[in-house]
Design a protein around this nucleic acid. Structure first.
Length: 585
DNA sequence: GCCGTTTTCGGCCCGACTGTTTTCAGTCG
């Protein structure tokens, strides 16, 4: 029972209550609690076991704390069992069909007996949905399209995929002279590891021309809606793009608003309300308590909105980097002046995971070296695979010694960068390492990672990793959870226990910067930092070009509030060597 | 259901677009 499972259960309760037509504020209470749980770095399971008081957590009161405890201890909650007696749980999926919310779900269920997405598709196909009051032919078609689209594109887009769609689109939009400013907001700007859609923001003199330019972009497959200031399209890739057009005096406010996250904005606006001001995408306004004009978004005295910095300043706060805007304490930190000095790409001085043609890399060792020199690095580690990964041409002791000879030869004539002799050593099924101890000791840097038997039972998997990282030669636990975004779930194991053990033994954990992995994820990294662990940002490059992926790691590190001091490969060579030599040798 | 520098009751973020119910509810972000 991990935090994600608890959060999902709370979200399910909220949806069931919504279908039931419960008090909207009660519903939101469950949603807020789910968010808290999802973002909490420490497993609530452990807090429950340790007898901690869950009501200390934001948005969790006596009742929900009780439900969480019940859930952890018994695997289920009476509340949801009771709700399921009234409302089929499968209706939760129906509410996730775009255009169908809880109200319409209830109507479909009551009047047509629809309990599943499949049944909804069939009913819509048969034309029954259009006959319901409140629905029509267009609604019915939208539902059919939405279900078909859902089947085509599952889930969210990896940030690196989104980059591929966004970059040319931004170029296209900026080509139009009527566009004065254009930015990408949303989770893309917050640099989340995956994005659901793309939010574009424009200041323009002639909105209609901008909308037309947007909708005629070569990759637009479908126009979902087009108004005077707002337009939504679906690209051929299936990704949705929202465009909003605003006047200059609203630009900063809109950028703030559409960057989100939703949770950050809720907290932000509550702060505004407490100060008698109102924040919307149009700007910051002094609320006129006498005037009863809630319909006018421009009512009241305009205080700020032109630049994002002004909007934060109007609420007495410094500007907050987008990566932090997840309602994880950033507004409190901003207020206290204790926002972290976030790491930047410029801080990175080396890369401690990459491969060469010695195993499954596409470039030679010296080509990789040239790539690192071109990045201005002071050092890098070459970390080819060990022999257990036969398919990658992993190295045994003899081959590793041959590689060391090559490294020595190159180092003798290349003094522009320090080469560290490393290896990504496989963690075997029982937790042994795939290299002899004397060789491990002789390496400058030892990464260990799991590549096989990813589906061991939780307890065995945990034991296996714990055993491996307790080996005195180990420096870094690489891609700790083994997940591959949108393709492979993380391994089942007790990550928190592994992090504790790593902290105890001075082992560094990796943030694998490859955009397919980004492993550990942001909340895990926050937990690691909390436990005093240091982090290594490694690209896991298999070709020179992959060295450029470091920025995805930095994005993720920033989302985890990491600073230069938290990241070992932002340290000077001297400090890195000191750390490496303090272990192993 | 949660919360508190309007604190144990009475609030809880705000606006756009669509389709359809001819005056607005539902959904979405």
């Amino acid at each position: 029972m991990e935090n994600v499972d608890i959060a999902r259960t709370l979200d399910d309760v909220a949806i069931l209550l919504e279908i039931k037509g419960a008090n909207p504020f009660r519903i939101r209470a469950y949603q807020n609690a789910a968010r808290t749980v999802e973002d909490h770095s420490e497993p609530l399971r452990k807090m429950v076991e340790g007898g901690a008081d869950l009501t200390e957590l934001q948005s969790i009161g006596k009742d929900i704390a009780g439900y969480i405890t019940e859930l952890v201890e018994s695997g289920t909650v009476q509340l949801i069992e009771d709700l399921e007696k009234e409302i089929p749980r499968s209706l939760i999926e129906v509410t996730r069909v775009p255009g169908v919310g809880p109200k319409r779900t209830r109507k479909l269920w009551e009047e047509l007996g629809i309990e599943t997405v499949e049944a909804l598709a069939e009913s819509a196909q048969a034309g029954d949905v259009a006959k319901l009051s409140g629905f029509g032919a267009k609604s019915q078609q939208k539902i059919l399209d939405a279900i078909a689209a859902r089947r085509r594109v599952v889930g969210r887009f990896k940030l690196s995929d989104a980059d591929q769609y966004v970059t040319p689109l931004v170029v296209h939009m900026r080509e139009l002279d009527a566009v004065q400013r254009l930015e990408v907001a949303g989770s893309y700007r917050r640099r989340r590891e995956t994005v659901g859609d793309i939010d574009l923001l424009a200041i323009a003199t002639e909105p209609q021309r901008v909308i037309e330019h947007f909708t005629t972009y070569r990759d637009v497959r479908k126009i979902e809606l087009a108004g005077d200031t707002k337009c939504t399209v679906i690209l051929t890739s299936g990704i949705q793009v929202d465009l909003r057009i605003l006047p200059p005096e609203s630009y900063g406010a809109a950028l703030q608003y559409f960057t989100g996250s939703k949770e950050h904005n809720v907290r932000f606006r509550k702060r505004a309300v407490a100060r008698g001001i109102r924040v919307s995408e149009y700007g910051v306004f002094r609320t006129d308590s006498n005037a009863e004009e809630p319909s006018d978004p421009l009512a009241g005295e305009y205080l700020a909105g032109r630049e994002e910095e002004d909007v934060y300043e109007a609420l007495g706060l410094p500007w907050i980097p987008p990566e932090l805007r997840e309602d994880r304490g950033e507004i409190d930190a901003a207020e206290k002046g204790s926002l972290p000095e976030l790491i930047t790409l410029d801080d990175i001085r080396g890369d401690l995971q990459m491969h060469s043609t010695w195993s499954d890399g596409k470039n030679s060792l010296e080509e990789m070296l040239d790539g690192c020199v071109a990045k201005g690095y002071e050092y890098f580690a070459i970390t080819d695979h060990s022999k257990a990964l036969a398919m990658t041409g992993g190295l045994d002791a003899a081959k590793l010694e041959m590689q060391w000879a090559e490294i020595e030869e190159i180092a003798s004539r290349r003094s522009d960068i320090r080469i560290l002799r490393g290896m990504e050593v496989d963690i075997l099924a029982g937790g042994d390492l795939d290299l002899e101890d004397d060789m491990l000791q002789a390496l400058d840097v030892v990464l260990v990672s799991v590549h096989s038997k990813l589906d061991l039972p939780t307890v065995e998997q945990t034991e296996r990793i714990l055993r491996a990282i307790q080996h005195p030669a180990v420096h870094i636990l690489a891609h700790p959870t083994g997940r591959v975004l949108n393709r492979r779930e993380p391994m089942q194991f007790d990550l928190d226990e592994v992090l504790h053990c790593a902290a105890e033994h001075g082992v560094v954990v990796e943030l694998n910067a490859h955009p397919d992995r980004l492993d550990l994820k942001d909340t895990h990294l926050m937990r690691a930092k909390e436990l005093g662990l240091k982090i290594s940002l490694g690209t896991d490059a298999h070709r020179v070009g992959d060295l450029d992926l470091m920025h995805y790691g930095v994005d993720q590190a920033r989302r985890a509030w990491l600073s230069e001091d938290d990241v070992v490969n932002a340290w000077s060579l001297e400090r890195v060597l000191e750390w490496l030599e303090s272990r192993g040798g």
